[in-house]
Design a binder for these strands. Structure first.
Lengths: 153, 153
DNA sequence: TATTGTTATACTCTATAACTATA
DNA sequence: TATAGTTATAGAGTATAACAATA
């Protein structure tokens, strides 16, 4: 068994190399960590939301979201307001500055991602898409222990 | 643009979920870190080698290899001997205990990986394989800056 | 002077647990 | 008492720089 041909190794190395290319853009060029980038993406994309909703749709746990949100709020990229309905909740929303920065960063990331994906033959792209979707299902379907990244103890 | 459908996000999340399943085995069950696991894999697989050779074929840099090797040597899983030819070099080799532990861990990891992969339709597995290979090439082909994980400054 | 391997430093990420304030 | 969010702590991963020993 050669390590290069061992599927778990291959997947990890390829995904890492791709993620590194993206991080060069939002990280080195726009000063965002991966968690900040995801959080901004989520808030830009959807309605203002609270921490648990965000955790659910970002594959981050509540601690990660809380800390990324604190940093983003410090930079003025998002706002955090206590909910009037339930004062335990905070409602996160993207600010105008946040929107502006996200737009720039997103264009950069998308451009780099497209550059890579468009260097692939269309059939290969389709194969990748199909294979990843199937892998995603297979991991969920065969999960044993507790579900990953639980939000509540 | 929905974050769930954004390719870089999808790839990262799926690869992460898969890697987590593997780490549950070699990590939680056999007490190895990811770097120790890779290093052991490499030494089990090939000839005894020096640090730079290992770095090249493991996607780890020399610092990571050096530290993982120190921990593995402490546990008695590998040996490190100064090369007689060039006394700057150290030759790493797996020990009998290392071999025994690796064999157990590998069986476990392979079993979990196979469980997932065999839950996929054969055509989906083939698509995944083909898509990943193409993605790997595309990332390399479109690389701009310095190559990732350089071993020498 | 250049190279191999090690150590140092700092920051990010991951995983838990404990804490606070509200409900 | 339970829940939402925060803070604390520790370990693992990543990125650089500096260093010692040897060539």
């Amino acid at each position: 068994m050669d390590i290069e041909g061992f599927f778990p190794y291959r997947l990890a190395v390829i995904a890492e190399a791709f993620a590194r290319q993206m991080a060069l853009v939002y990280g080195r060029k726009y000063g965002l960590t991966r968690e900040e980038w995801r959080l901004l993406f989520l808030l830009e994309d959807g309605e203002p939301a609270d921490l648990l909703q965000i955790g659910h749709s970002s594959s981050l746990d509540k601690v990660q979201v809380s800390r990324a949100a604190a940093r983003l709020a410090d930079k003025g990229l998002i706002s955090r307001q206590v909910s009037p309905n339930d004062r335990r909740l905070r409602v996160y929303a993207i600010t105008a500055e946040g929107h502006a920065l996200f737009t720039l960063a997103f264009e950069g990331v998308r451009a780099r991602a497209d550059e890579i994906l468009l260097a692939m033959a269309p059939e290969d792209r389709a194969a990748l898409d199909r294979g990843l979707a199937a892998l995603d299902r297979a991991v969920s379907d065969t999960a044993h222990g507790p579900s990953p990244r639980p939000q509540t103890p």
